Computed example of a mutant assay.
Amino acid sequence: MNTPAALRVAVLGAGSWGTALAAAAARRHSTLLWARDAALAQAMAQAHENHRYLPGVPLPEALAVGSDLDAALAFLQGDPARSLIILGVPVAGLDPICRMLAQRLPALGMAGVPIVWTCKGFEEGTSRLPHEIARAALPAGWRGGVLSGPSFAREVAQGLPVALTIASRESSVREATIAALHGGPMRVYASGDVVGVEAGGALKNIIAVACGIADGLHLGTNARAALITRGLAEIARFGQALGAQVETFSGLTGLGDLVLTATGDLSRNRRVGLEIGAGRSLGDILAGGMTAEGVRCARAVLARARQLHVELPITEAVCAVLFDGVAPVTAVSSLLAREARQES
């Protein structure tokens, strides 16, 4: 594989995941992390720590941090083949940042720079996947892909072992991402199945909420195993209807990400489910500052599934609990009351 010997990497978005990836890239390449919040950027530059999203985790001193988007893109200016943009923003922020890039990159002669997004979910209101959002907003000639897989940002920032997948239809995007991040404790695998990777990353969050609810109700590990297994079948069924490759769902961004998010103590989606299972309302949970992509995208997923005539019983149950006032116990009972069927 021919990859650039050295890259310039700009990570746009200084949440926990953007910061973690910037830290990983900075250990190998010249890297700049852009934060929308100027005060946060200044604090990170001085303390080499993201006290808001990754408190207590030191960042490489070589990592540059700033809040000027034009300066961040000028940092890359040169050969697009030796540059990489990583978008560490949530699904709701993907369209705005892509439109800002569409306005700026052509003038810099950087319209062909590889752009990789990390968000997981479907856009509320439109039910678009991230690649569909990017395709509509970015300039002609853009090259992009999605970076996903079983990973908690804190562990990545700490330099603990992790395996990720970069999915793109462009080999140059896959190669640039591997060159930027693969090495040491981080392994990066390549895939061409953008739809499958994005579908797995979105739906695993919803299944994790369901597993958290079951755990909060103390339904036992048998119930959790059943939800994970049938949840994976639900993810694969929906993904195939979208055009994904079925084998993707047995890999890192399918089974791997699902198991991590449904069982890991650092999973925000599982924690939301745990709180709901313990009797707290979604409004109270969200008012406390807890956010989870599974909550944000559940209705968008269900809407798109209905357009495709795909049955998603676990997702329907989660939506009923989150948004329709159905008691968790009632939702579980409705799942258990479903007729027996062939497993596959």
Rank of each mutant, 00 (worst) to 15 (best):
A102Y: 03
A190H: 08
L203T: 01
L7P: 00
Q158C: 10
L336Y: 07
G277I: 13
S151M: 13
A305I: 07
L108Q: 14
G78E: 11
S148E: 11
E170F: 15
T126G: 03
E123A: 15
R128D: 00
I314M: 14
D284W: 01
R143T: 12
T330Y: 04
G145N: 14
P139I: 07
V310W: 09
Y189E: 14
A45T: 00
P4W: 01
P328N: 08
M110V: 04
L203P: 00
D324T: 04
V11S: 04
P106F: 10
S334K: 15
P150F: 09
D70G: 14
G216Y: 06
E247H: 15
W34N: 01
E293S: 09
R268W: 03
L336G: 05
D324Y: 03
G121T: 02
A136V: 05
I285R: 04
S267V: 07
G109N: 09
G216H: 05
A278P: 04
V246L: 15
V209K: 04
V295K: 03
D95G: 03
I207P: 01
D193V: 11
Y189I: 13
L160V: 03
I228M: 15
P114G: 13
A179L: 13
A278E: 14
A331R: 12
R187C: 06
A111D: 10
E311D: 15
Q77P: 02
T263I: 13
S168L: 07
L33D: 04
V162A: 15
G56L: 10
R28N: 07
A190W: 03
E49A: 10
A233L: 11
V65S: 02
R270M: 02
E175H: 13
G243C: 12
A303C: 09
N50Y: 05
G277R: 10
R306A: 11
A153R: 08
E311S: 12
T291L: 09
G239S: 11
S333L: 14
H218P: 00
V91C: 15
E49M: 12
I314K: 13
V113L: 12
V259F: 11
A23D: 00
Q342H: 13
R237A: 06
E234D: 04
M290Y: 00
Q342N: 11
A225E: 00
G239F: 14
H182M: 08
G192H: 14
P161S: 10
L21S: 06
R128Y: 01
L217M: 08
R154C: 03
R306P: 00
P58A: 02
V188Q: 06
L308Q: 08
G159L: 06
L232K: 12
